[in-house]
Simulated scan of single mutants.
Amino acid sequence: MNTIATEIFPYWYGTKWSFSSMTRTPQKGRIACGYFITNVLTDVGFNIPRIKWAQSASEVFIKILSKKEIKRFMNKPITDVEEYLINSGNGLYLVGLDSHTGFIYVDQNKVRFIHADYYEPEKGVVSEKLNSYSPIAHSKYRVIGKLMSDLMIVSWLKNERIS
């Protein structure tokens, strides 16, 4: 999970956002939020239905990947979300919003939202604080699932299709 945050995400930073865009190459072309998520997961070796999930509601794949470790927030301040994440511990999370998706990375009480930013499409993929001017801070609905459960790791090691 540290490798994804420190070595994979940086390749994608600056890849411009565009609705329905699906570049497979960081820094070339444009990418939508769902494709950013599924590209990263595929690139690190998870056998998932990349295109199908990228085009679905994020809660669909969050439930599949996170199993029981899911938390929903409805009309709650972003400070409640951040407190939950810090108390849940270091790790990589997926988050689904009203009309967006991204990763959340928690490391030593620092919480970052990594996503293909449609607020500033030319900035594209960014890492920002939760309370920044971003979709996560303004969303009324947030569903969060922690990644890298034992079941997810076993599927990854066995190269089993997760669907």
Rank of each mutant, 00 (worst) to 15 (best):
2 N>G: 09
3 T>V: 11
4 I>W: 01
4 I>F: 05
6 T>R: 07
8 I>S: 02
10 P>M: 04
11 Y>L: 08
14 G>Q: 14
15 T>M: 14
16 K>W: 15
20 S>I: 04
21 S>V: 13
22 M>A: 15
27 Q>E: 09
27 Q>S: 14
28 K>T: 12
32 A>E: 08
32 A>V: 00
33 C>A: 09
35 Y>A: 05
35 Y>L: 04
36 F>E: 00
38 T>I: 09
40 V>T: 02
40 V>G: 00
42 T>S: 07
45 G>P: 12
49 P>H: 03
52 K>F: 05
53 W>A: 02
54 A>S: 01
57 A>H: 08
59 E>P: 03
59 E>Y: 10
60 V>E: 13
63 K>T: 14
65 L>Q: 11
67 K>S: 06
68 K>N: 11
69 E>H: 03
69 E>L: 15
70 I>H: 08
73 F>N: 05
73 F>M: 11
74 M>I: 14
81 V>C: 04
82 E>D: 15
84 Y>P: 15
85 L>E: 04
85 L>Y: 01
92 L>W: 00
95 V>R: 02
100 H>L: 13
101 T>P: 04
102 G>L: 06
103 F>D: 07
103 F>C: 08
105 Y>A: 01
107 D>P: 00
112 R>V: 01
118 Y>Q: 09
119 Y>V: 03
119 Y>W: 13
121 P>M: 01
122 E>V: 15
122 E>S: 13
122 E>I: 05
123 K>S: 02
124 G>D: 12
125 V>P: 01
126 V>S: 01
130 L>I: 07
130 L>M: 12
138 H>I: 09
141 Y>I: 05
141 Y>N: 12
141 Y>E: 06
144 I>Q: 05
150 D>H: 14
151 L>D: 06
154 V>R: 10
